[in-house]
């Protein structure tokens, strides 16, 4: 290399307009033509819920829904999905109001460190959109591309089963955490029970 003028090995093309509908909102950003969807979503669109775990399509953390189909955004060129409808984990909930699958992941222990959770949520929501009464085997097949190092998957499958029951309407979903709680005792609560061993 000595004495030679340096030639740039990695092309850094100027960005060009890239547009898509991300979580229901049309976005248009400048992105290099060789950009990977994961990078565009994280660095340009700002959906940081899409996680980068491996860059090789092995961990599933970067799963997003592209036109309703779960895909690995690290193996997708942004240019391939120009104009597509993309749902990330941020698009599953209605703002701060959680979708059933999200509530169930929380209540069933489907999320520990939480890094793989966005990918799992997108993959399992895609499953529930197609099939609201999946068997445990069908659930396993739907999340086979996602690695989780904390939970051992068992509680994740429990969570997806529970969410499916909400989707089928068998169980009622939880209220948003921010809604005012209706008073369960319009006339006040019951009198507190006496401590044991003490007569009234």
């Amino acid at each position: 290399m000595v004495g030679k003028e340096h030639v740039s090995m990695i092309p850094t093309p100027k960005g060009q307009p890239w547009s898509a509908k991300v979580n229901g909102t049309p976005v248009e950003v400048l992105a290099p033509s060789n950009a990977v969807l994961l990078d565009v979503l994280r660095d340009k669109v700002g959906t940081l819920g899409v996680k980068r775990g491996c860059d090789l399509g092995t961990c599933g953390c970067c799963t997003v829904m592209i036109n309703g189909v779960p895909k690995l955004s690290c193996l997708t060129l942004a240019g391939q999905v120009e104009g597509a409808e993309i749902i990330t984990v941020e698009g599953l909930s209605n703002g701060a109001h959680l979708a059933p699958i999200q509530t169930c992941f929380a209540t069933h222990g489907g999320s520990q460190c939480g890094f793989c959770t966005p990918g799992f949520l997108v993959a399992s929501q895609a499953l529930l959109n197609e099939n609201d009464s999946p068997s445990r085997d069908e659930i396993a097949t739907a999340i086979e591309g996602n690695l989780c190092r904390c939970t051992g998957y068992q509680q994740i499958i429990d969570a997806i089963e529970a969410a499916a029951a909400i989707h089928r309407g068998e169980v009622e979903g939880a209220e948003p955490a921010s809604s005012p709680h209706p008073d369960p005792h319009p006339s006040g609560p019951e009198e507190p029970t006496m401590p044991p061993g003490h007569a009234k």
Partner: peptide
């Protein structure tokens, strides 16, 4: 902190 984790926040 699970609600922060399941919403990607």
């Amino acid at each position: 902190d699970s609600n922060a984790k399941v919403t990607g926040q």
